[in-house]
Computed example of a mutant assay.
Amino acid sequence: MIDKNSPIPVYYQLKEDIKRKISQGVWKVGQCIDSERELSESYGVSRMTIRQALGELVQEGILIREKGKGTFVCEPKVKQKDMMSFSNIIKKLGGKLETKVLALEIIDTPEDMHDVFSFDKLYRIDRMRIVDGETIANEIVYIPCDYCGYIDEKLLEGSLFEILEGFGYKIDYSQSSIKAIIMDDYYKKLFNVDRDVPLINIYSKTITNNGKILFVEESTYRSDKYLLEVDISTREGKFR
Rank of each mutant, 00 (worst) to 15 (best):
I90K: 04
F167R: 07
P7A: 07
M183N: 03
E236I: 04
Y221W: 01
E139C: 00
A137L: 03
E157T: 02
A103N: 14
E98C: 12
K225R: 06
E162Y: 10
G95Y: 12
I62P: 00
K15S: 13
T135K: 13
R240W: 12
M83W: 03
K15C: 10
K92G: 14
Y123Q: 06
K154M: 02
D146L: 10
N201A: 13
L156A: 01
S42R: 09
I178K: 14
I182Q: 15
D126I: 00
K100V: 03
L57R: 08
I213E: 01
V131R: 01
D196Q: 10
V131L: 05
C145F: 06
G166P: 01
K69I: 06
Q59P: 00
D184S: 07
V141R: 02
K4P: 09
A180H: 05
R222I: 00
S42A: 07
G133L: 11
I136K: 09
I200T: 12
N209H: 13
G44E: 14
R124T: 04
N209K: 15
T220W: 01
I2N: 08
D17M: 03
N192T: 06
R37D: 15
I182K: 14
D120L: 12
V216N: 00
K92P: 04
V78D: 05
N201M: 15
K79L: 11
G95S: 11
K19S: 02
D34T: 11
